[in-house]
């Protein structure tokens, strides 16, 4: 009688078919891997090196040790732009999540017209960022903008959204809510996946609407909430196009708007790199932003272990 020897644990031999499949897999993955190495990994390594140099893009980089990082820590313009960016993120992300969730809950209740409203809420996302910037510059005009005119109808003298440094950031946050359609759609999809029997069971147990929302809806969509928290936080920290268009896009606007109030971190990075030709310093700025995003993301992931429920996982 023939005996079959089981492969030693941990050294399972792959069949020829498996090896062939692996080769094909690597072949199909090769374009992405090559692209990643050339367009992501390579530039990242290069920018890390450049962050330790004095580099004006025109002449060869000169190693200057940690000078760029020291300057980063002491440059008030960097601190200002970082402060503005954090301020924006701290307000934008919770607002987008709350409003999107509210809209998604409303949309879920809409019957046959849900498809129409879903499209309506998503349409603004399709608007080019540059157009959004210009549009809101007009909407936020102090004397003739639609927003202040609307406020005037209810007796409120609207603020100088684009020139008063205290109101520049709220104006930008207002603008940022224009394109929350993506988050709404994600929440709507998550809400539609919550099993109805959970609500029925909760109702039988005597749970009211708020209790059902807190004990059923929120845990069941916590994965989507966590995903949008991460994505929106990262996007907020990288805010560039709309604000650059509004306040820095051409000489006229760049001259007459308060750049302290509207300076975001990536905008300042861009100016350092291409207007002032401090590419080494800008590279150091990019790495600081990377570190900040990494820390925030890791903290969020850590917190998610306690608050996020994924179906199929033992909790």
């Amino acid at each position: 009688m023939a005996t079959v020897t089981a492969p030693a644990p941990g050294r399972r031999r792959r069949t020829p078919l498996a090896r062939r499949e692996a080769r094909w897999a690597y072949l199909f993955l090769a374009p992405w891997i090559i692209g990643f190495l050339i367009f992501y990994a390579g530039p990242m390594v290069a920018s890390l090196w450049l962050s330790f140099t004095e580099y004006d893009v025109i002449n060869p980089p000169e190693y200057n040790g940690l000078d760029n990082y020291r300057e980063l820590m002491s440059d008030p313009a960097v601190a200002r732009s970082l402060g503005n960016t954090v301020y924006y993120t701290a307000l934008h992300v919770p607002l987008v999540m709350l409003i999107s969730l509210g809209l998604a809950l409303l949309l879920k209740r809409v019957g046959r017209l849900q498809g129409f409203f879903r499209t309506v809420f998503y349409l603004p996302v399709m608007t080019p960022a540059v157009a959004v910037g210009i549009l809101f510059l007009l909407l936020l005009n102090t004397q003739d903008g639609l927003i202040n005119r609307a406020l005037g109808l209810v007796g409120i003298d609207g603020p100088s959204w684009t020139t008063d440094p205290h109101w520049v950031m709220p104006g930008i946050i207002l603008m940022s809510l224009w394109s929350l359609g993506s988050t709404v759609i994600i929440y709507l999809a998550a809400l539609q996946n919550v099993p109805r029997d959970l609500y029925e069971a909760a109702s039988i147990d005597g749970a009211g609407p708020w209790a059902r929302f807190r004990a059923v809806t929120l845990p069941m969509i916590s994965g989507a909430l966590f995903f949008t928290l991460i994505v929106n936080t990262i996007a907020s920290l990288q805010m560039f196009t709309e604000v650059y268009t509004m306040y820095f896009g051409n000489r006229e606007t760049q001259n007459t708007f308060n750049s302290d109030a509207a300076s975001f971190y990536v905008i300042h990075l861009f100016q350092e790199a291409f207007q002032f030709l401090h590419m080494g310093f800008a590279s150091a700025m990019a790495w600081l932003l990377f570190a900040i995003i990494l820390v925030i993301t890791l903290a969020q992931v850590k917190l998610s272990n306690r608050f996020v429920y994924y179906e199929g996982e033992d909790q």
Partner: peptide, 24 residues
């Protein structure tokens, strides 16, 4: 990928721009 893109922003440009260093 967004994180990578954020970091590679200056990096990608830097690599391209640093390709040939100085000029004659």
């Amino acid at each position: 990928s967004r994180i990578l893109r954020a970091t590679a922003f200056a990096g990608a440009l830097s690599l391209v721009l640093s390709g040939c260093g100085g000029v004659g």
